[in-house]
Design a protein around this nucleic acid. Sequence first.
DNA 1: GTCTATACTTTGATAGAC
DNA 2: GTCTATCAAAGTATAGAC
Lengths: 210, 210
Amino acid sequence: MQTDAPTRGRGRPPEGVREAILATTLELIAEQGLARLTTRAIARHANVSEASIYYHFADKPALIEGVILDAVLRPLREFAASFPARAAGKSVRDALLDYGLALESFWTRVLPVLSAVQADAELRERFQERINELGLGPHRGVNAISTYLGERQRAGAVRGDVDTRTAAMSFASACFLSAYQRHMLGARTRRKLPSLSSVIGALADLVAVD
Amino acid sequence: MQTDAPTRGRGRPPEGVREAILATTLELIAEQGLARLTTRAIARHANVSEASIYYHFADKPALIEGVILDAVLRPLREFAASFPARAAGKSVRDALLDYGLALESFWTRVLPVLSAVQADAELRERFQERINELGLGPHRGVNAISTYLGERQRAGAVRGDVDTRTAAMSFASACFLSAYQRHMLGARTRRKLPSLSSVIGALADLVAVD
DNA sequence: GTCTATACTTTGATAGAC
DNA sequence: GTCTATCAAAGTATAGAC
């Protein structure tokens, strides 16, 4: 029952089709997971035909893999780039708080995609290869914060007897668990873990020079 | 081309069919994920007909849900039951090490299933409901270890100025991150995080009275 | 309670007009 | 570059014999 546009789509500019497919696919993966994701659903939600999907992507796995990798690498780059700025001119405690909350929200963005990867053996294998090639993984975050703590330690702001690598691991993993709980049990669930802020605060008290 | 058993199966006792279906389904979910799991594959690997699946289970979602829930609750019960025994007569350090490694391997068992849950929106919703009803979640582990540390603190084996809840959170989350990295990047991947033992050891040094 | 055979539905992917 | 229409394959689920 379209009254005025018999020849072209219902408002989507033709050149946005590829981007619409990518964005919609990511959205659907995050919302409903990979198990029942169909090309038909992607096409409908993106206001596009299924054929267009196969014009832009070789097949369904190629589309998924592209979306997944991008959905991990993009937030990662943004986050990594923001790190130096976060610490600048702050106390150790404030820097850790700021960094920790950012780390938690990074994981909150990425976890739905990581879970989707685990749902398909082929995808998982390719993803692991790619991540290993790039040398990525949680150790990156641990190393970054460990380096930061080391610097502050030499500057006398962190207690000399603290093992910065262990402290960094505790810190990073608390952020991760916090994000994972929300991911697994849903945002509406009442949080029964100590708040991330309080845990980071307590860790800061342990490592920082008073 | 069966030469000797025209009427009955190739060795599976008829009464084991239901169990075989359950075990095989879990195995396949852990191995290849939920996205491409078919009733045909389950039947083949379990050496059973597809029809038998539908005799024992209402439909595919019902089968999956049963398997999933069992695969989380069973290890959880076993693990929870083993906890008191782990701490008995040990130093704080040894108890934490023992508990931590057990916690890591608990997560290693359960994570593949939790990831599968995230791959299907309907499954995720039912799972979250059930978990919330039962009051489960990572906070259980944190509470248990926090209680343990509190007792040892009153006994003088843990430093009085330690916040046991924060320490427990750090401890539990390190175990979780350790397991998650292996889950996500594969067991063969060279571990680039500090070993869990070393992190737990360092945490124990921080909280235990020398 | 389990099987074989099959009905029905959905899915990924392609052909061809515009 | 995008669409409509269509196909072959794969998927879930059922019927009926034993």
